[in-house]
Simulated assay, not measured.
Amino acid sequence: MSSESPQAQPPSAVPGAAPVRHPYLLLWRWRRNPLRRPSDRLGAWVSLGLVLAVLVAAPAAMWGVGDSAYRHYRSTAEHEARSRDHRPAVLTHDAPRHPEPGSDEAKKARYPVPVRYTGPDGVSRTGTTEVRPGLAADSTVLVWVDAQGRLTEPPLTAEQIRSRTMGWAILAFLGVVLAGLAAHAATGLVLRRRNLAGWDAAWADTAPRWSRYP
């Protein structure tokens, strides 16, 4: 008995696997074919234009907004350094003790405590500032005071300026990218509605001719 070798079979698709697409399928809107509509070519040109616009505008917006933010925060820091003063203040109450003295958390913890200090005008004032845990009443700490004699935050540091500048720059970059995506989605929606309207018109013209046949 002669045995016949089985014929080769095409590989079966793996369940759940994504279909294999050739790279040229991604550029079908650019290739000549009888199924390509004018709206397909228009959508391709719009997509290309949006990609190029985002590639140019996003870095430009990131640099422009970042530079403006840096100038703003640097000017703010200089104004704060001129208008704020570091002054001694005396605790009027004991600061709470941390439940885990000596721990890393205790070293970073700060508790609000009432203090008494002298403002730039020489008048004694009271306020609340954050101090290390465990400080006893009548201990002296340094506080920042503004020109009106109110307790305030220290002037912006170089690290804070860089952090805030980078935050605004990243937001500007993402804003341009999201605007490009929104424009692409809106364009696709308009073209899709235009295609559907064209199909409806074509069907309205074709359907009566089909109804002539039994």
Rank of each mutant, 00 (worst) to 15 (best):
R164T: 10
A136N: 01
S163V: 04
A172D: 03
V145E: 00
G175S: 15
V143P: 06
L91Y: 01
V145F: 01
T157L: 07
E130W: 15
S139D: 03
S103D: 08
T92Y: 00
W144N: 05
R132D: 11
P96I: 04
D121N: 15
E130H: 08
A147R: 11
V123F: 03
W168C: 04
K108D: 07
G149K: 05
G102W: 12
R164P: 00
A106E: 04
E78L: 14
E100G: 06
A81Q: 13
V115K: 02
G134F: 12
I170L: 15
P112G: 13
E153C: 00
Q148Y: 14
M166R: 14
V113E: 07
R74L: 12
P88Q: 01
D94R: 05
G127F: 04
A77R: 13
L174I: 11
A81T: 08
P120E: 07
H79P: 01
D94H: 01
T118S: 06
D121R: 09
V123Q: 15
E100P: 00
V141N: 10
P133E: 02
R150V: 04
A89I: 07
K108Y: 03
A81H: 13
A89R: 01
F173V: 12
V143Q: 08
D104I: 09
R164V: 01
G167F: 06
R125L: 06
Y117I: 05
A95V: 03
R116G: 04
E100R: 09
G102K: 09
P99V: 08
